[in-house]
Design a protein around this nucleic acid. Structure first.
Length: 886
RNA sequence: GGACGCGUAGCUCAGUGGGAGAGCGCUCGCUUCACACGCGAGAGGUCGCAGGUUCGAAACCCGCCGCGUCCACCA
């Protein structure tokens, strides 16, 4: 140990790159991250990581969420360390196959090779994706390691693994048998980019400026109607014109028919409450095959569905008329031109509205009718709503609760089929002879109806279908595995707001339906980190910041601290300063520990250090003070972590380490720690008492900070603790209430105020840094702290009575409860001293006036709480004493 | 259109009923025997605007202005 301590001497900086990989390897080797499936499920703690996409690389959202979960996991793991019987902590790790994203990535690679998935064929393509995943799919897991994330790496899951796939098929069959999964021809969000249907949640509205065309349709038998549209190309699919049933203007039009320009089809004029009387002319064209609203109206009125745009985004051969084969956009221009030629364009106005785009491919959504598989969510939603209402699932911060409940209350069917190749193929089999549909977890031999050959559905499931099973499928469900028994349900799910519906709500629904329990008790919604300028962090905008690069630059501890410190209950801008603050903290803690250890070892020798009392032998007022403050920060930090208040947890540690431990405590006791080469004349007991307190405070502080900054604290633990145990497996410090000492706090904090006042005064009168100034304390409340006040403020305190000191004083410095009289002015700027005295007196006077005014207010004295009134009275008295002395 | 949130020091943000705070930046002074990624001392704010509640408002309520996010089927 002595040799190890000695090597610290030359390490004047904490160099993260030097220690991170070494320490991480020790953690991995220790097995601490991999709990056996044992213990009491009520007391075990588990988190299922939101599975990153295999295609992904670590971005700021991952880095923040990784830091948050790791704080929780490390905190709980340490808390579990001293429990009997022991409890287990598990962070479930894995990745998501991410259907569309991964398929797109591989297709891009194929394109670069001059081939395509269609040329390869389905089987070869899927094999290609698996290869790709073997090669590149591990990046993000390695990046989580760089962050220090203490996931259970021994059991990594993947949403397409065999076991997981069985769970997915099993769920599909169960829900089909309940009648909740069904097949329907319905209008869907067609994404021409990925050539697949997508769900409502994968559509984003973008505000765009379009032209709103007003077009005249003639009526059969004379007259006309004028309809408005931003999508004239869809008019070829019109099958009705609608007006509002209460619209007096058009009452007699209902039942007549309009003639569709360019096509000549007769369109019935119908009445439907959906039509807004005060929008445009109050006359609306109905295109059931290409507009979700019109689709519903069409169903109500039994209208024909004429599809004019196909899945390739082009006008169809069947109904596209002379525009067949054109893209929708080309068709728009051509249709407008043709209408104009006939003089049917009544107006073309600029119009701003929301246009749906695919969140996946970025292409404009083409609503069209398609045969897809849907899941009815109403029955699933009911208990999931109740779970949140009852508090069985808590959403933090709770303003997201209402968002969840509102969305769940109005939940709509979920289109779960995707026209992709990469994913879970639907466990649906069609008979080639009689068309009978079989839904089964494993492929039946033949059609049960006619014995005909079966063909499996080509479509795969929406990626989120498998993600919805994540917290239990990763633990082996539907098998009743030991893991499932002790780690399910999990404790918390931490994520950003954007996947609250897409993922979180669906996990709650599926969890309750399939396991009978909500999959987690808390949902923590963390900040979205924006670019420093407030824009979105994105590659395309060039606003992205790479967390790995930040880790390389500042260390993982710094990045973790920074992200936690900047996070909040709302979205925040990335703050490089907070990361620097974290780096500074790691370095500070390193140096403080290094300093203390070197001095203590030099002063006592290694044998004596090893035999030191583990508990502090507090003696002096500063010892009592720091121990009391330590107890406070221990209480606060644990409470903040449990309240998901990570920002205050991190910043509170910073404030303690800087503002109390280093700036004050270490400075105060420095002189009692003999220099390496200087034998001390202090007695043995005093040295041991100080050493014991100092090492106790440092051990506790280092352990306390471990969940936030695990690397530097683990490194320091190696020097502070002789046992060789890893800090990650040690118990979390718990506040010792007997150390709370409010008297010491009051006394020391007053001394600190006085020291700061004198230092400020010294600065303003041009006193040189090293110069000692003769003075006398004229305040009754510094008996215990006078020596340290003198040392820290560089005063040469003389004895004697206060009144005579005032007589011979050249100038007075105000301190809490009195003054310090300066007895010699050699080398001081007396004019500046006088100016300062006057200025301080003036400030005191103003403040005294303010308090007097308050106390003179009868309303204040009568109605304010007694404690507040007393507080103001005390303060008034104190300030008056100071002012008089000045 | 609905919901939620934000507007506090040059910047990024705490503070949510009784003395305006932090980090960074800025100024001044320190090669003080842990740390110059350091130490000490400072300057800097009509707490978006207007009204109300209260003995007392940055905080609570109402309105307005500005900004952001989510949800929603007005062509």
């Amino acid at each position: 140990m002595a040799e190890r301590i000695a090597e610290l001497e030359s390490r004047t900086r904490f160099d993260p790159s030097d220690v991170e990989s070494r320490i991480f390897q020790r953690w991995l080797d220790s097995g601490l991250f991999h709990p056996e499936p044992e213990g009491d499920p009520e007391r075990n703690y588990s988190i299922a990581i939101p599975p990153p996409n295999v295609t992904g690389s670590l971005h700021m959202g991952h880095a923040l969420n990784g830091s948050i979960q790791d704080v929780l996991i490390r905190y709980q793991r340490m808390k579990a360390a001293d429990r009997t019987p022991p409890s287990r902590t598990k962070w479930i790790l894995g990745t998501d196959h991410a259907g569309i994203a991964t398929q797109a990535q591989v297709e891009k690679a194929l394109l670069a090779e001059g081939t395509s998935r269609h040329e390869l064929g389905r089987e070869a393509f899927v094999e290609r994706v698996w290869d790709w995943r073997e090669h590149y799919g591990h990046t993000i897991v390695e990046q989580f390691k760089r962050l220090g994330a203490s996931c259970d790496y021994a059991e990594e899951r993947f949403t397409l693994d065999d076991g997981y796939a069985r769970a997915v098929a099993d769920v599909f069959v169960r829900l089909y048998e309940k009648g909740w999964i069904y097949r329907d021809r319905y209008i869907v969000n067609w994404d021409p980019g990925s050539r697949s249907a997508i769900s409502d949640l994968e559509v984003e509205g973008r505000r765009e400026t379009d032209t709103l065309y007003s077009i005249r349709y003639d009526l059969d038998g004379g007259g006309s109607v004028t309809i408005a549209t931003v999508r004239p190309e869809t008019m070829l699919g019109d099958t009705a014109v609608a007006v509002h049933p209460d619209d007096e203007r058009y009452r007699d039009l209902v039942g007549r028919s309009a003639i569709l320009p360019l096509v000549g089809r007769h369109l019935p004029v119908i009445a439907d409450g959906y039509v807004k009387m005060d929008f445009g002319t109050g006359q609306l064209k109905i295109t059931p095959a290409h507009d979700p609203n019109d689709f519903e109206i069409g169903r109500r009125h039994d209208l024909d569905q004429v599809s004019v745009i196909g899945e390739d985004g082009r006008m169809t051969a069947e109904a596209g008329e002379r525009f067949a084969g054109l893209t929708a956009m080309q068709a728009r221009e051509a249709v407008v031109a043709a209408l104009a030629e006939e003089g049917r364009i009544v107006a073309d106005d600029t119009y701003k509205h929301e246009v749906p785009y695919s969140h996946r491919s970025g292409e404009r959504i083409e609503p069209l009718i398609s045969l897809q598989w849907f899941m009815d969510m109403t029955e699933l939603a009911k208990p999931a709503i109740q779970a949140v209402l009852d508090g069985e699932v808590r959403i933090v911060p709770d303003n997201n609760r209402r968002v969840y409940l509102d969305w769940m209350a109005a939940i709509r069917p979920w289109c779960v089929s995707r026209q992709l190749w990469w994913g879970h193929r639907l466990p649906v089999y069609y008979c080639e002879t009689c068309s009978h549909i079989h839904v089964a977890a494993s492929e039946p031999e033949a059609c049960s109806e006619c014995g005909g050959r079966l063909r499996q559905e080509e479509d795969v499931l929406d990626t989120w279908f498998s993600s919805a099973l994540w917290p239990f499928a990763t633990l082996g469900w539907p098998e009743q595995t030991p893991e499932l028994a002790v780690f399910y349900p999990t404790n918390v799910l931490s994520t950003a707001r954007d996947i609250l519906f897409l993922w979180v709500a669906r996990m709650i629904m599926m969890g309750i339906e399939l396991t009978g329990q909500a999959p987690f008790s808390d949902v923590y919604i963390h900040s979205v980190i924006q670019a420093p300028d407030g824009r979105r962090m994105s590659k395309s905008l060039g606003t992205g910041i790479d967390p790995i690069q930040e880790i390389e630059r500042h260390g993982a501890d710094a990045v973790r601290f920074g992200l936690l410190a900047m996070s909040s209950t709302q979205d925040v801008c990335y703050s490089a300063e907070k990361v620097q603050q974290g780096q500074a903290l790691a370095n500070k803690l390193f140096n403080a520990t290094r300093f203390a250890l070197l001095r203590v070892h030099a002063s006592l020798g290694p044998e004596a250090v090893a035999e030191l009392e583990p508990e502090p032998l507090a003696r002096t007022v500063e010892d009592r003070w720091i121990l009391s403050r330590l107890a406070q920060i221990e209480t606060d930090t644990a409470a903040r972590i449990e309240d998901y208040d990570f920002s205050h947890a991190a910043l509170g540690l910073y404030d303690f380490v800087y503002g109390e431990l280093c700036d004050w405590y270490l400075e105060l006791v420095k002189h009692r720690l003999p220099d390496l080469h200087d034998a001390s004349d202090q007695d043995e007991d005093a040295r041991e008492a100080l050493a014991a307190t100092l090492l106790y405070v440092l051990r506790q502080t280092v352990a306390l900070a471990h969940p936030v900054i695990p690397f530097v604290t683990e490194e320091l633990w190696g020097y502070l603790d002789g046992s060789g145990d890893l800090l990650a497996g040690c118990e979390y410090p718990c506040a010792d209430a007997s150390l709370v000492d409010l008297d010491a706090e009051v006394e020391l904090e007053r001394a600190i105020e006085a020291i700061v006042a004198v230092r400020g005064w010294r600065d303003s009168v041009g006193a040189r840094a090293g110069m000692s100034i003769p003075a006398r304390l004229c305040a009754p409340c510094y008996e215990a702290t006078a020596p340290l006040l003198a040392r820290m403020a560089r005063l040469e305190l003389a004895d004697g009575d206060a009144d005579s000191a005032r007589g011979q004083a050249l100038v007075s410095v105000a301190v809490p409860g009195g003054t310090i009289e300066i007895l010699s002015a050699e080398g001081l700027d007396l004019d500046a001293a006088e100016r300062r005295r006057v200025a301080v007196a003036e400030k005191l006077r103003v403040e005294i006036e303010r308090i007097r005014g308050k106390l003179d207010n009868p309303g204040f004295v009568a109605k304010a709480p007694a404690a507040v009134v007393d507080g103001e009275r005390e303060r008034l008295q104190r300030l008056t004493v100071e002012l008089e002395a000045l």
